[in-house]
Design a protein around this nucleic acid. Structure first.
Lengths: 110, 110
DNA sequence: AAGTGATATTGCAATATTACGATAAAGAAA
DNA sequence: TTTCTTTATCGTAATATTGCAATATCACTT
């Protein structure tokens, strides 16, 4: 098939999966790290930073935007993308919660 | 193509992407949440918890294991899988770092 | 040894993802 | 207006993912 049965899971599970999936590619991790490093969000040289062709980078940016991890618009001949604090806070909370529970639990069975 | 150009990215970027990708499916998020909820790691009823057929669940478990998010073995006729604290700590640190930086930066351009 | 219960593997069909060349679109600069 | 620069979209090829039926495996029981 290749189609995900999203309807059978909770909204939160699907939301986390969407965010995680968007970061499930090293190029998109690299884009996020680059946007974090660059102070201003006027950053038209993401393509030069990555070992990928321009259409491929554009496609990865689109996926990050669809997932809600980045936001921004094209302004003239420079893009203005930046990270969406809210989305990162959401996924950060998910992992912090898990790590916190695991630390408490001290599961030493495996 | 469909093949990811992992060689052009840093080890850390690939590592994060691998972990994120493994959680890029609601079923695998559900499995992780279930393993977190269940105290003991003797949990042979993951299949009953999910709206998926047994081979599909087995495949998702395999992917989580390959990514290093869960660990464990089959023992007799019950599986013993549990979450790998180290892997979750790694991805949690990644997101905590990003959220922390974003909060400091107060990027209000987009 | 044969049966039972639980998980893994195989094989396959449907769909999704990744990557890029070619091309389009749209503002900036001449 | 024409040209340049930058980003998006289209089309396409190669590969990956998802899901499940059928079957295999493996430990335990009888």
């Amino acid at each position: 098939m290749g189609v995900t049965k999203t309807t059978h899971f909770t909204d939160k599970q699907n939301a986390i999966a969407t965010l995680a999936k968007a970061l499930g590619h090293p190029a998109r991790v690299a884009i996020v790290e680059y946007l974090l490093k660059v102070d201003a969000c006027i950053c038209g040289d993401i393509v030069n930073e990555l070992p990928l062709a321009q259409p491929t980078v554009s496609q990865h940016l689109k996926e990050l935007k669809n997932a809600g991890l980045i936001q921004g618009e094209v302004e003239g001949n420079t893009i203005c993308y930046c990270l969406n604090e809210k989305a990162f806070a959401e996924i950060q909370a998910f992992f912090t919660n898990i790590s916190g529970s695991l630390e408490l639990k001290k599961n030493n069975c495996c």
